[in-house]
Amino acid sequence: MAISGVLRPGFVQIRVLDMAESIIHYRDRIGLEMVGTEADGRVYLKAYDEFDRHSIILRECDEAGLDVMAFKVSNETYLDEYEEKLRGQGFEVTAIAAGEQPGVGRRISFMAPTGHRFDLYVDMELSDNGPMTNNPDVSQLDPRGMKALRFDHCLLYGGDIDGTKKVFEDILGFSTSEVVVDDDTGMIIALFLTCSNKAHDLALVRHEEDGKLHHVSFLVEDWTSLRDAADIMTRYDISRDIGPTRHGITRGQTIYFFDPSGNRNEVFSGGYAYYPDNPLRVWQASSVGKAIFYYERELNDRFMTVVT
């Protein structure tokens, strides 16, 4: 098997200011399925093309942002290996018992040098509403809203992105597909990590404050789906950041917009297929406009400053 170890981004837990508004946003506008609400108030959702039970968790809080991003791992042997290596590198690893989230097996949890909490787990129950497997139709449930296929990746902001890069590369087996570097010093300003065939599964931007969320991204089918998503954003007066446009980095097509708590979302399509033998793609900071927004060729005011 080619892909082993860390398989993909599995779930994120997002802090929201108002649960009722957030459910309308994620369920009706982005088009996720409601999985359930638990006694602690957390709301679980999934995209229609995901097999696993849930991928998006909303937690009501008086401060927006990201609680945790979790990756699914192929088997327990890898999970044990990661735990040992993380501890060996001096990270505090917390064990989270199976069942802390419904349908999810044991997790290990650590705080990355950029101040983001990451969880790793092997088991999650399959959803009854996942993709069909027997003479499968394209979808079991009728796609709704922006027709998000899956939770795709996150872009996170923090200080020591070199440190977090090292953890993901050296311990968790990720590769770096692209970087943005300072023209003069070569210091990495932004980097794009992949554990798969995707151009990125996790992206990091250097920022003065740790633990920040830039966006949670959802895959949609194609460029036309982005047009339809943009129609929905105007129809329902959703706060839009930029797009439809394209990223130079990953070559993905994109719209950035905000959930009702100010957490940035993305609908994303395309992007090249990555293989671990691909050479690193490098952008000079002087070309960062084109790297981030390929058509505008310049950053907007919000790209570097607006995070939760």
């Binding site: 200011l17 927006a64 706060s239 100010g262 940035r264 919000r302 400053t305 607006v306």
Partner: peptide
């Protein structure tokens, strides 16, 4: 007054 997320989350 700069516009950020427009949703009360980013503080800009």
């Amino acid at each position: 007054v700069p516009a950020g997320c427009r949703q009360g989350g980013c503080g800009v």
